[in-house]
Design a protein around this nucleic acid. Sequence first.
DNA 1: GTTTTTCATATTGTATACAATTATAAAAAA
DNA 2: TTTTTTATAATTGTATACAATATGAAAAAC
Lengths: 230, 230
Amino acid sequence: MKRGKKPSEAWIYDQVFGAILEQRLRPETKLTEHELCDVFGVSRTIIRKVLLRLSLDRVVELRPNRGAIIAAPEPNEVREIFDARRLLEDGIVAEAAKKCSQMDADMLKSMSRREHKCIDEQDMSGAIRLSGDFHLKLAEIAGNRPLHELLRQLVAQTSLAIALYVPTGQGMCDDDDHDRLIDAIEGGNADLSRTIMREHLSVCERRLMLETPETKSDLRTVFADVVAAQ
Amino acid sequence: MKRGKKPSEAWIYDQVFGAILEQRLRPETKLTEHELCDVFGVSRTIIRKVLLRLSLDRVVELRPNRGAIIAAPEPNEVREIFDARRLLEDGIVAEAAKKCSQMDADMLKSMSRREHKCIDEQDMSGAIRLSGDFHLKLAEIAGNRPLHELLRQLVAQTSLAIALYVPTGQGMCDDDDHDRLIDAIEGGNADLSRTIMREHLSVCERRLMLETPETKSDLRTVFADVVAAQ
DNA sequence: GTTTTTCATATTGTATACAATTATAAAAAA
DNA sequence: TTTTTTATAATTGTATACAATATGAAAAAC
């Protein structure tokens, strides 16, 4: 924690969100207000604001009178998030392709380089973060603030889903979709950009182990064949 | 206000939002926490939560150390909101056309009737609300919860924009776009639905006036009748 | 042995007290 | 008069106290 000065609400938000990305905080984990107060050295007033923001980003679930837990989106919900992103980013990337300046393109390339570096160093939470920032930068280039804010929410939820459904250490974005996207955008090719974006999001979605059932296992089902053989 | 029992956070949110829609609260009006506490008979804790939620919906602006005021989106921002809605609702209405059941269609028709009734009775805030609900119902039919939540935010911002940029009493939706939309959706015609929706949103946008009326309101006067009922 | 009840503890929800900051207005200087 | 300064009041930001609710463990009932 920061020395001397008290940590800000935004900083605490980042710390908690980061811990979720790094899977140090697992889904369903209870976030007790008093514990967070102790950890960060602030009052419940601040912690409650952080928890409210996280809950509005659907990263934690706020249950009335029963406190906050780390959210655990069902595979079904994750698919809806990706559907929503395909719709939004289809329009965003097309607009970005029209408006992208040389400075914008340079920034995108720099972000992509940093992302590759994280992947090389096995820093998966860093890679998830930078990947999200890359997509948000496109929304910024597209120049529609409401869309940028909406995508920010979807990216936060996607980041949680990746942290949940991709085993630690396993590669998520070891391809170079982002680089191909930059080329298409830099060339002002809106249609190609859209195709790559759509395909990119679908590839990401398929990499998630969404077939894994979230619900608890039924013992009878699990041992059905063993018992039958008896 | 509710008798005896203290008003809930959600109810206060609705009251304030409703007052904005009905233009009893004008843009730039300062929302002093203590005054709202007096008006609604709750502590600042509750009022601050309401203000935070309203600010996240961009209906009020929360300025650090300087309190909350009713938001006044610039014409430029309003255009971005409509751009964003065209993108989202293009996809939403196409999906709704595919999935719309008879029960859904009946509900849409019922909502449209109620909307026409409000317009006939010059109840403009009611009409704005019902129009928003109609669009949100389409998102519900489309069956994508994240998209529904994102559209809810955009609808709230649009409602504020309409309340701001359309003079009181003047018609906003005196056409029957919604009814034509229902026909296309009921017939499962996705492409036609998209065309109507796109055109509908553009017509709404063009109806808005680009002059900014900025008279502040007095909180006690605005909520006088609500409090008297207690 | 299992379930239900009861009670103590822990946790969240709300109100309020105090601190930090900003707005207002009167007094002083230009 | 106009501007600057300064003190006072008003308002927001944060911490904490108290109330309402939920949790969990021991005792009672079945």
